[in-house]
Computed example of a mutant assay.
Amino acid sequence: MTGSGPSSQRPPHPDDATAGAEVLPPPVSAAERANRLSAANMLRSLLPLVVICLLVVGWQAFRNNPDDPVREIEPTSSLRLAEARAVYPLLIPALDEGYRPTSVRTDAGTNPEGSPVTVQLGYVTPAGNYAGYVVTDDADAEALDVLDGAAEEGAVEIDGEEWTRSTTQRGETALTRVADGVTLVVTGSAGDDELREVAEAVEPFAG
């Protein structure tokens, strides 16, 4: 005969009922949900901008062909400033796309109003050579130093205008025309034919 002794089991505890239950995360507040939505909306809004930036960078990389080191510039703003300050009709070569502008300089923005104005332009020619152009009403302009020591070789007619052909100390051709106190110079490593094309293209600036 067996007797029943006192039980060895402890009485149930209230926590035992939830011991095996899944613990759920605390509910997300409305403010947190709004913040998450705002971050997601921001990312979606930035995505088109990122795509556009990548397209622009790709287009620039496509244009800047590593096989072509020439970097063209846009001289229009400088020429407009020079035209506004000059007291003479500004004459600039109107060249086709084969002549690519690579440099422009003017003192129009630094000299007092009414002072002489000098403009210098540099081009890479279709043959890959350099052609420089100068127009100034300053007889002492530094840009005219290229004519120092040049040997005059006579007059040539270009597009109905008389120019003086010279050979500079560098051995390059220089074409010069002076009219109404304004000096025009076309010179550079380009051949005579291309320098003549630059001189022929000179006309009042229409910027």
Rank of each mutant, 00 (worst) to 15 (best):
G98I: 05
Y99D: 05
P101I: 00
P101N: 06
R105A: 13
R105T: 12
G109K: 01
T110W: 06
T110Q: 10
N111P: 10
P112D: 00
P112Q: 02
E113C: 05
S115F: 06
S115Q: 01
P116K: 11
T118M: 10
T118L: 03
V119G: 08
Q120R: 12
Q120L: 13
L121T: 05
Y123W: 08
Y123K: 05
V124H: 05
T125W: 06
P126H: 00
P126T: 08
Y130V: 14
Y133P: 09
V134E: 04
V134M: 06
V135L: 13
T136R: 08
D137Q: 08
D137R: 07
D138L: 03
D138I: 06
A139H: 14
A139T: 13
D140F: 15
E142T: 11
E142I: 07
A143W: 04
L144H: 07
D145W: 01
D145E: 12
V146S: 08
G149M: 05
A150K: 06
A150N: 04
E152Q: 13
G154I: 09
V156I: 15
V156T: 08
E157Y: 11
I158W: 03
I158Y: 08
D159H: 12
G160C: 02
E161P: 04
E162S: 14
E162V: 15
E162Y: 12
W163Q: 04
T164L: 15
S166C: 14
T168E: 10
Q169S: 12
Q169V: 13
R170Y: 11
R170Q: 15
G171I: 00
G171R: 00
A174G: 00
L175H: 01
L175D: 05
L175W: 08
T176I: 11
R177F: 03
V178Y: 10
A179E: 09
G181N: 05
V182M: 02
L184A: 12
V185E: 01
V185G: 10
S189C: 01
G191T: 03
D192H: 00
D192A: 11
D193Y: 13
